[in-house]
Design a protein around this nucleic acid. Structure first.
Lengths: 357, 357
DNA sequence: TTGAAAGCGCTAACAG
DNA sequence: CTGTTAGCGCTTTCAA
């Protein structure tokens, strides 16, 4: 049906066309399209019909050029590791972000980085003013990305507590959304304690991430005087959890419980325990973190774990950013929650009991 | 440090500013910024310096307005199911897409749909001409999305073989990228045959997806005269795999091998087998599909499976789309691989042997 | 309440 | 090779 000329450019109708059709001026059409404030009803109606008939869709480029809004938000995921693929964590946050952005007619521009070589590109993009704001996931304590973004001077909300000192002099507070990692960890360990366990070990995540640090702190809050050999570093993967568990068992054969920093390492730990002949939960009780259903419900036994509302975190990040944008009309600070509002929003966690503890 | 006036808009330098600084015209600056063809070296140098000093970044909106290019591609993931989160499949494809787009200075706009209610929004967006093209994942046979996108008249490449009739009259061929699902399935089943197994069962994915159909066809290619009770529908999840495995064992207690349509269902099947006292691979040999490392390598025993190069699929999709865009200057057809080129690119799979078969 | 007119920042003919 | 000149499609004063 379609012709095959190279120049076959479907000529999208412009405001002009709609105006002509409706017999009004461009300005009037523009008003109607943008909410119809201050236009008399019959005209509104006529314009609406013309828009409908012509299948008019505003040209976002032209609009941005004058409004300096883009109705787009960048989501930066700076995770060189394979973690992004090993668990559905980011996917769920993305889902939440997407929902919120969609509800506000904003677009999601995804920026994935392979390595730090990509950071310059991301910085340039953000500084280029192509988006109204940024949602940034950068989990590592020494990551230069946050600083770079600060320089780009674009409103930003971080996913997870950023690693640098909160109160650096002269700098604006950095808004972020996080789970109550510390509190959740405390709940987990207390639960184990309540089960009558006393030799409670902890498999951490990578120690250069704030979530790991916070969960470890929670563990220590409750187990202040625990044997330091009961803490082993993992890496949030099943393989790491398995390795850590073996080391733990090696060091402290008498341990009777384990709190793993996430479900994936818990699943690895579970495997090590089974291989080495320990029954769960009879011999060793096990608690995870995340409540990633495909993992936590599928292990044998299913995992008792600390649930964080991952999707809600994403939604909240977007919501905070958008709110800030509305407030200051897209102006240039990474400070959506301005005006002395708390800079970090911490979502509660809940302990989900299954069979492993 | 920063003042707090609402109007604090960092005034980005314009072409004009750079031109003034370099003592040339806007046109010259534009030329340099876009590659510097046909500008004498000393001028190029001066302009470059001015750009550098001012920290000039082109205003994409202004550029798009005239070029009608956006240097952005939409990625549409239409998966209402939770599958997106249950396995890293999309994440890996996204990674591949992102790499390729990045290499071509193109942006990735992510469009996630919750339900079919969102389709209209996606259609509007695509039809709105906000992006140069679209990469679409729509796995279900009866999905109205492809038709909708066809209507939007934007260059598109599909991920996975689309479900509708390839040769519908008068319609352009639909470019897509897929794995050789059928061939991979054949390899899997032949491998099982080679192991001396004869009662080989198949756990399918959801039957409304082309990948499921193709893998089933591959199974049947080799097992033409197999007992029909040896085929049970699964849903690509561990739970589904477990359920299917139980049913299979119930129907055909004498089966000695299983080909599961993906690793996740294989892991579920594995669990059922263990629970019911069958040894893998001694009693029942098991082969999966995907080679999702976090799954295939972590099961006990690790899975023999059919590897598909997921990331490469993503990269190829983007590459195809971009190539098509270059060719026809962004014109309006879903036909990047135009000119009689094959409309579907099918990537080979490879059997990866581990312990389960 | 509506319309006319002036750009937003950039590219692309067209001259010189 | 470089500069001048028109717009791209839209929003937004400013007048009417």
């Amino acid at each position: 049906m379609r012709s095959h000329e190279v120049t076959e450019t479907a000529p999208r109708p412009t405001l002009e066309a709609v105006a002509a059709r409706a017999g009004v001026s461009r300005a009037t059409v523009s008003r109607v399209v943008n909410g119809g404030e201050g236009v008399r009803e019959p005209l509104v109606e006529r314009v609406r019909r013309a828009v409908e008939e012509l299948g008019y869709v505003p040209n976002q480029a032209a609009r941005s050029l004058v409004t300096r809004r883009h109705d787009a938000v960048a989501v930066v995921i700076a995770e060189p590791e394979t973690r992004v693929f090993a668990d559905p964590f980011f996917a769920l946050q993305l889902r939440g972000i997407s929902k919120e952005l969609t509800a506000h007619d904003s677009q999601l521009v995804l920026l994935l980085t392979e390595s730090r070589d990509d950071y310059a590109r991301v910085g340039r993009y953000l500084a280029g003013g192509h988006v109204d704001g940024a949602l940034v996931f950068s989990l590592h304590l020494d990551d230069p990305l946050p600083e770079l973004i600060r320089g780009a001077d674009v409103p930003t909300v971080f996913g997870g507590r950023p690693g640098w000192g909160e109160g650096a002099r002269g700098t604006a507070p950095t808004p972020y959304v996080d789970s109550d990692n510390r509190g959740g960890a405390r709940d987990a360990v207390r639960h184990l304690l309540g089960l009558g366990r006393s030799r409670i070990a902890h498999i951490t995540g990578p120690l250069d991430q704030t979530s790991t640090v916070d969960r470890l702190d929670g563990y220590r809050d409750v187990m202040a005087d625990a044997d330091p050999r009961l803490v082993v570093e993992g890496d949030f993967t099943p393989a790491g959890g398995e390795r850590a568990m073996r080391e733990l068992l090696d060091r402290c054969p008498d341990l009777d419980a384990v709190f793993a920093a996430n479900d994936l390492s818990a699943s690895g730990a579970l495997r090590a325990l089974r291989t080495l002949g320990r029954r769960v939960p009879e011999d060793v009780a096990l608690v995870g973190f995340d409540d990633m259903l495909p993992v936590a419900e599928q292990t044998d036994p299913p995992l008792t774990t600390v649930r964080q509302n991952t999707e809600e975190m994403g939604r909240l990040m977007a919501s905070l950013l958008l709110r800030g944008l509305d407030r200051q009309g897209g102006g240039g600070a990474e400070e959506p929650g301005a005006g002395g509002a708390p800079s970090g929003v911490v979502l509660p966690t809940t302990l989900v009991r299954r069979a492993s503890a």
